[in-house]
Amino acid sequence: MPETTRGLEAALAEASSPSWTQRACAGHDLAPFADVPEAAEALLELLLDVEDTAVTRQTAEALARVGTVAAVRLIALAVAEADDNQADWLRTGVHDALVGPDGVPDMAAACEKLARDQEEAVRRGAAEISVWTDGAGC
Rank of each mutant, 00 (worst) to 15 (best):
A24Y: 07
E14P: 09
Q86Y: 08
K113P: 04
E3M: 05
R116E: 12
A26M: 05
G7M: 05
A26V: 13
A31I: 01
F33E: 11
M107N: 15
E45C: 15
L77P: 14
N85Q: 15
V99N: 11
A109L: 10
E38V: 01
P18S: 09
A24F: 02
E119G: 06
D88L: 11
C25E: 13
V72C: 07
C138T: 07
A127S: 14
L43I: 01
L48P: 00
T68M: 01
E41L: 04
A26Q: 04
L12K: 09
C111S: 14
T4H: 03
T21A: 13
T92L: 13
D29K: 12
D49F: 08
G67H: 07
G125A: 00
A108T: 03
A70F: 03
C111P: 12
A26T: 15
L77V: 09
A24K: 12
W89T: 07
T53I: 12
G27R: 06
A121I: 04
A97C: 12
D96C: 05
I75T: 10
E112V: 01
E119M: 09
V79R: 04
L114K: 02
E128A: 11
V131K: 10
T5E: 09
T53K: 15
W132D: 01
E61I: 00
W89E: 07
V55W: 02
L47K: 10
A87F: 14
A13L: 09
T4A: 04
Q58G: 13
G135F: 00
V55Y: 05
E61F: 03
E112Q: 06
V36I: 11
A70V: 02
R91Y: 08
A71F: 07
A80W: 08
L77C: 01
V99C: 13
E128T: 14
V131H: 08
D117Y: 02
A108L: 10
V50E: 10
E45F: 09
G103P: 00
V36R: 02
Q22T: 11
V131R: 03
A115R: 14
D96K: 14
E112T: 07
M1H: 00
R123M: 06
A97M: 09
S17P: 04
V79M: 06
A109G: 02
A127H: 11
R6E: 13
